[in-house]
């Protein structure tokens, strides 16, 4: 499948995967992430059950403390 991840094209052999699997494959290891699929927020507890498919637009942002 081909998806857009943070505004860049990404290709995977898999036909689909969960959001959690994508985070693991792409090594997003930060403690706190904002995850969006097709501009809708995906809450942390739904990353395991949210499926990413060909053509999806995925955004992963890092939240770090400080202000």
């Amino acid at each position: 499948m081909k998806i857009i991840l943070n505004n860049r094209d990404e290709y995977f052999d898999e036909e689909e995967m969960t959001f959690e699997e994508l985070l693991n494959i792409k090594n997003f290891t930060f403690k706190m992430l904002v995850t969006k699929l097709n501009d809708r927020l995906v809450k942390k507890e739904f990353r395991d059950s949210t499926i990413i498919k060909d053509g999806d637009n995925v955004t992963v942002l890092h939240l770090v403390s400080g202000g």
Binding site: K31, M32, V34, L63, S65, G66, G67
Partner: peptide
């Protein structure tokens, strides 16, 4: 300041 608060607001 804290990331947990940022997350809650978002």
């Amino acid at each position: 300041d804290l990331q947990e608060m940022k997350d809650m607001l978002i």
